[in-house]
Structures are given as C-alpha cells and as structure tokens.
Design a protein around this nucleic acid. Sequence first.
DNA 1: AACCAGGCTGCATTGAATGCAGACTTGCAT
DNA 2: ATGCAAGTCTGCATTCAATGCAGCCTGGTT
Lengths: 219, 219
Amino acid sequence: MQYSAYTPRVQETQGRRDRKKSDTRDALRIAALRLALEHGYDNVTIEAITEAADVSVRTFFNYFDSKEDAVLGLGYDGGAGVADALAGRPAGEAPVVALRAAFLEMAANLAERQPLWGQRMALVRANPQLLPRLISSFAAFERRIAEGIAARTGCDVETDLYPSVVAAAAAGAMRVAMAQCRFRADEVTLTEFLSSAFDVLVRGLTPPEASTKTGPTTC
Amino acid sequence: MQYSAYTPRVQETQGRRDRKKSDTRDALRIAALRLALEHGYDNVTIEAITEAADVSVRTFFNYFDSKEDAVLGLGYDGGAGVADALAGRPAGEAPVVALRAAFLEMAANLAERQPLWGQRMALVRANPQLLPRLISSFAAFERRIAEGIAARTGCDVETDLYPSVVAAAAAGAMRVAMAQCRFRADEVTLTEFLSSAFDVLVRGLTPPEASTKTGPTTC
DNA sequence: AACCAGGCTGCATTGAATGCAGACTTGCAT
DNA sequence: ATGCAAGTCTGCATTCAATGCAGCCTGGTT
C-alpha cells in the first residue's frame, strides 16, 4: 500500500505516541464525565469507564490517580489562565484590581478553554461528595495566584503572608461566585457573580452600604 | 455486688449508654491519630485502629464515615467557637475587625478546646494526602461565619454575596496562617500569624507598604 | 421482671487502588 | 529495512476501605 506519500493528518508538534496518549486521556475523561452524569457518580464503576473508552482498568490508573480525578478532569494547568492574565495587567494597578480584571478575563475565555466546565459543575451539584476534591484542587490555583501577586508587589511567597492572603481571598471570591452560580443560573452569568464578589474585595471588605455608620445595614 | 449505693462518677446529664458511646468515639479518634503519627497514615489499617480501641471493624463505621474523618476528628462543631465569639462582639464593630477579634479569641482558647490540634497539624504535615479533606471541612466553618456576618450586617446569606465573600476571606486568612505556622514554628505562634494575616484583611487587601505609590513595593 | 430500642458484632460483598511481570508499540539510530 | 531501547498497555493477584444485612447483647423503661 502506498499511503506513504500522503500526510494523513496535520502533525503539529507531537508524535504519534503523545497523540494517542492524549486521545486516551480525553476518552477516559469524557467517558467518565458522561457516565457519571447519566447514572450518578457512585453508580459508575471504573470498569464501566474503561469499557466505554476501550482500555483496560489498569490503564485507567496510568492516567488518573483516582476516579474523582477523572471525572473532575484534574491533573492539569490549575489556573494558568488567571496567572497569565494577571501577568498581563499593568504593574501600577492595585493587586486586587488586577486580580479582578484577570478573573473576569478568565471567565470570558472559560467556554473555549474548558468546554466541559458546565457539565462538571452540574455533576458536582448532583454529587456533593465530589466537592472536597474540587475545592482542594484550588490549592495549586491559589499558589499560582500568590506567586503572581508576590512578583507584582516584590513580596516573598514563602515568608510574607500578604500574597497568600490576597490569593486566598480571591480564590474564595471565585468559589463563592461559582457556588451562587450553581444554585441560581446558567454559565453565562458567572461573570456577573464574579464581578459582584470582587467588588467586595476591591471595596476593602466593607459592608455593602453605609460603611461608616454604626448600626447594621440592609443590603 | 452492692455498688448501687455509690455514684461511681459524676453523672452529668448523660446515661451510661451515651457515656460509653462518647468513650468509644474518643478511643477511636485517639487511637487513629496516635497510630497514624507513629506509622504513617496509609500504613495504619482500620483493623489496627479498632484493635487498639478494642471494638470491631464494623463498629468503626458506626462512628466515622471514613478513616480520614477519624484521624482528623471531624463530624463536630466546625467553628462553633469562632461563631460564638463573633456573636459576642459589639454590633457597631466593622465586620472584619470583629472577625479578627473572634479568630484571635478562638486561637487563644484552642489549646483547651482542641488538645489534639497540634498532633493533627503534625499529622497533616507528614501526610499531605489528608489536606483535601481537612480543607473541605472548613466549608461548614465558613458557612457559620457567613451566617454570623449576615446577622450582623442584615444581609441574606443565600442571596447576598457579601457575607460569603468575607467569610471565605477570613477562613482563607486562617488557612494561610495555619500553613505558615506549619512550616515555621510551633503552636504558640499561631496567634501571631493569625494577627498578621488579618491585618491584611483589615487594611482592605492593600499591599504592605506605600499603597498609594505606583511601583512595586518591598515588603 | 420483662420488654424494647439502639448499639455492637461477624459475615459477605463490592469496588477502588497498587505492584508486578510480560507483551506490544513507538521512536530512533544504524 | 533492521534492531534496540524506552515507554505503554494489559492481566493477574492482592490489599483494604466501605456498605448492607441479620443476629446478639446491653442499657433504659415500665
């Protein structure tokens, strides 16, 4: 057979091996997510996932450390988007303002960067047991943000508390926005919630109205 | 045997059954923590824990949902201390200032309320696999803080983002302080780290020095 | 004393997760 | 093309966490 003259696919940068690996990983992630959404997280065995992806059970564990990692699609960037966006903000901008802009930028690109994001959120809503792992996956995310803040303020991530505290607050704001988003509306409004949540940080955590008065305020 | 005339122990409010239950729970928690510290978390089977506590394996699962819950001592208050302390602060105080005071108060009482706290921190440091579960256990904690803030500002926890965002920021500050504490010193200095972390929040998340200047600052 | 609810236990089962060793595929150099 | 080396996939065996069930026993009640 003389197929050799053709270039069957655009080769990009990877070899066949890496391409297959990537395919297998995607197949497992997608199958895991789909099955978990259809039948419920604990009603799906790893065996079922591997059969859907047409690999052996043992292979599954070559790609993911646990079933949770597979359905949540973990083991990846972990907020590289926000970190890049943060690096792109002007140096003079106040840290929190820069963070706000970076997060909103990320939210805008979310759909294309993470096409499965909506489904994952739905899955977590339906299976709260997944929440711990999801939340803890934000740790790496927070770390990257802290590094970005440190670079921008000249602090040391290891010894100064400032970058880590700001990063934790920002990550918390995002988490809250996502939670609200889960209970209220669809993906489209994440930007709005995110914006509102960051307003609180930008305002310096002061109450919504009449911050100088003494009595409790209505929001 | 005529023990009936005596009152062998101060009875308080519980009957023998509840007392035994409490004892068993404590025995399991303590045994789990001790064994995990001695041999490493994954080198300790639930069977070993139950043998040390002298109950059956099946009984273990009547008290805890998982091995992690046992070693981390979960299934309890979840920040009742901070919530109470927060409720005790004057109403006119700014939310963040009140939170700061409440957290420091809790830290001061930590030793007596949670005598095993230091050991648990050491365990988590030695076994980072426990971190996810520990972090996620803060969720209930955060919720209570959010409710306290909501009550104090007249917001609604469900619909307003403010209480949740502030609670997330505060919980994050505590988490960061604990992490720093883990890597640097012993329990005694948690108060200091906590104080520094909350300074960042009280300051409105502005950088450590020269917040009005434009260039990056040294901390 | 007798009854009953609730806790403890053993047994069996499922399924996640890991180590190991052999077979196969891929990439590369000859 | 051919052979080699590295990396992958796979089956098998094993350990152990976790759950359901059914029976026994203990503590509290009348």
